[in-house]
Amino acid sequence: MLPFIFLLPLIQTLILVYAASFDMKEIRLLIIDKDQSTESRNLQQKFIASPFFVTEIRHEASNAQDVIISGEKHAILYIPKDFEKSQKRQESTELQLLIDAVNQQAAGLINAYTNNILRDYSGNLKLEQGLISEKNLSPINVQKRYWYNSSLNYKHFMLPGILVILVTIIGTFLTALNIVREREIGTMEQINVTPIKKWQFMLGKLTPFLIIALFDLSLGLLVGVILFQLPIVGSLVSLFVFALVYLIAAVAMGLLIANEAKTQQQVMFTVFFFFVLFVLMSGIFTPVESMPQWAQAFNHLNPLYYFMRAIRMILLKGSDLGDVVPELISLGILGTVMFGVAVFRYRKLS
């Protein structure tokens, strides 16, 4: 059990952070070039030179669909005949881009990357043809800067989220399993005939899992800093204070579930249900602000939501406890109520 508690989180951090990356590399693109002109080859070169694409050129359009259906290619760019000719005549030309959009997220990225290259290409074209001057290549020139994650490193965004999941598994899952296991093997009954107070027992269950989870959080942070150059902008004290409050809520959730479940199987099922629900709604992948109103309202009851928000604010933005006071208070109330209900619902019966 001990290696399980300490090794699995490590593996989880290592694997999930890489796996949950949204960056797309090696987009398999098929260019069907019906024109076979200098201009069409210029355009091909742009794609070949891009680090995001693995490009293959064909001159026949036969079975274009098949390569998408079989998954051999992610996208097809069709360059029609007269591509060069119409450019010479300064007419507008149409290209066709077919994208496998089963994964809409990936499709959106492919579209954006492709469009960037095409825009670049057509801008240069207009410049060459003297249609526009360098100065107004683009009418509005935006100077953008990404704050708090300047290199748009997706791993830095995901890692705090993974850490939240990690401590939740320890806090909620292990606690619930532990208590139900005691019920199954009979030690619980032995405890229940003793004069031990309900809160004493609950506190005794809370404490060790709190410590293990905080240890695992430190371990995860360390892995993040060493392997993923995770920036820790804010103070670790703020983070751990928040984590402590969060874990009381997480463990209380485990205690609540253990009270109602009779077997380990029931615990597994119940925890898994809430876990998936809470994780997906917490904003780990998608911003909570873009969720419907009812979902945002629901999130007030979701302990993961508060921690997910706060850990990113503290680690990436450098927010301190003062900035997350509303989250801290809500979470504290939620945790206290859940722990209270857990103690209240716990019956010292067999």
Partner: peptide, 11 residues
């Protein structure tokens, strides 16, 4: 009271 159950129940 003391109690010893049918199921063995020390840790």
């Amino acid at each position: 009271i003391g109690y010893m159950s049918q199921k063995f129940s020390l840790y």
